[in-house]
Design a protein around this nucleic acid. Sequence first.
DNA 1: CGGAAAAGGTAAAACGTTCTACTGGCGAGG
DNA 2: CCTCGCCAGTAGAACGTTTTACCTTTTCCG
Lengths: 333, 333
Amino acid sequence: MTTVSIKEVAARAGVSPGTVSNVLNRPAKVAPGTRERVRRAIHELGFVRHGSASTLRAGHSRTVGLSVIDIGNPFFTEIAAGVEETASERGYAVILGNSAGSRTKEERNLRVLAEQRVRGVLITPSDQDLARLDRLRERGISVVLVDHPGHRPDQCAVAVDDVAGGRAAVAHLLAGGARHLAYVTGPLTIRQCAERRQGALAALETAGLGPDRLKVVETAAMTARAGERAAGDLLRDGLPEAIFCANDLLALGVLRTLLQAGVRVPDDVALMGYDDIDFAAASAVSLSSMRQPAHQLGRTATELLLDECDNPGTHAHQHIMFQAELVARESTR
Amino acid sequence: MTTVSIKEVAARAGVSPGTVSNVLNRPAKVAPGTRERVRRAIHELGFVRHGSASTLRAGHSRTVGLSVIDIGNPFFTEIAAGVEETASERGYAVILGNSAGSRTKEERNLRVLAEQRVRGVLITPSDQDLARLDRLRERGISVVLVDHPGHRPDQCAVAVDDVAGGRAAVAHLLAGGARHLAYVTGPLTIRQCAERRQGALAALETAGLGPDRLKVVETAAMTARAGERAAGDLLRDGLPEAIFCANDLLALGVLRTLLQAGVRVPDDVALMGYDDIDFAAASAVSLSSMRQPAHQLGRTATELLLDECDNPGTHAHQHIMFQAELVARESTR
DNA sequence: CGGAAAAGGTAAAACGTTCTACTGGCGAGG
DNA sequence: CCTCGCCAGTAGAACGTTTTACCTTTTCCG
């Protein structure tokens, strides 16, 4: 329980605390002999730098915040893994916040992050109101939007083109011969859901078909359970020839319910998901999906954030847009 | 970028900084009128307490560390969700570390946690060498083991009975009529893998069968891909009547490979997984599994940790052991 | 009514770093 | 030989809180 401070290291090495600090932060500034002596003292005493003291004095920490909508969704988990990996390589710690789609939880998380004086925040915003992010930036906390297109030139953003993704998915279903489709989606207030729908409609239009060909089934959550309920509705009201789901969890729920009802996939109904989580390939009927580069999303976002923190002068804000990739499997064969 | 401190709040409310601190930390100690005045000043100025300064002076932070073996595995993700939820409710931040099974990464993570002076650490240890955890505890950082049985009376631990789980799983397969079994597992140096095997052997013995009835196939990782390879080996060397997998990811990989090879599950081979992740029920043939209370594991561990931190005097260390629950689905019907 | 204790508050010293300004010493250029 | 500038290192203030010791009123109670 005895905590050893920089002073004791200094005493042991026969130097001043300032020199120890220099060894820690700017080793080049101190003569090789002294440097080694200090390093040895650090090692012998088991000294570990007090991060809070450092943060307090230096004015910035070596932590970043990560706020995701749903840590239970493998898509976000993979983003988180990419973030953790990149941050860890650079000696940064990651503080995790799960907003669970709730605005109040997101606000509480951001507050905690502000208290911790994180260097920056990576956030997949739970809604379109980004004003409170400005409050963070006023405090000198950099913000990078993840899975959200940049809407302003003064901040970085990393996203995947959801309109193009939706278009590609529905074009694929149309190419399979379907003419009446359903779109099973989470709340259309969620940008991703709305834009994928927009892309879907665009694909219909390109094929000379009207928007009435796409029946939209909106669910409260983007989970397998919600997908099951949506499929129940479709079974009751009449099945389309193809179903496009806004993510794989919904699609897996839909698939399970259809199969239990004796519907054959893809013979009776073709089915597509979105995200291409690992489990899409392993499901009852392997699921066609739109692959998003989740890990790379997390990695790129973190690199942008740390670049912004480390080179505040030269950093150029960027909006990076990845493209989703169609992965055709049994469910649309 | 102007950061407002407790002093400015004090000036605005016409009190001393000490009183503001009291409002923040022991509101009962200050008269209602003053309290309200201070609260208003805090709100008007948008004051946010500087966590590092607080930590430095108070000697302890409001953060806990979480180190998991594989954040990509839904079992651990669900633990993490339970931890995050509980910590967040109590105003604690969670610093996430992913050891990815690598000892050096785990060590690096623990070092970062020590620097951050986290209040405590929740860890699913990546191996049996727990000595470095003692080094944390010497520094006054409480440690709670997650998914690991407590081996010492001076620390808390939360786990699920893996021997009993392995026994139940194999007993179920034996009840289905199988007499020659395989156990597809990750490295047997991993405690969970070894204990489930031990339970499996116990079930065989109870049934009057020898250990030669259980062919052990050891893989390098506990992923779906490793499961695919293991299934390939089994196909080459001759299939057993039932396969027990050390986790669901392995089982999903095995399942995919078997089905592709034209093997019928459960008719030709019965299959069981472990963990009962959400996707087990949605797979090609819905997967029988042993359900572990992952969310509750995370929640309970966090509660124990925070209790230990908040009541160092009265806290009694506990070893809590949950039981896994058999969930029978199509793959063992 | 006197004295003790409680209530409400303040001033100032920490906590462990980093950073700024400064000090010697030494080699090089004029 | 003097001075300039650099190198290696030092002393001490500062960062924003919490906490301790202390002070002044007010309240309580015999």
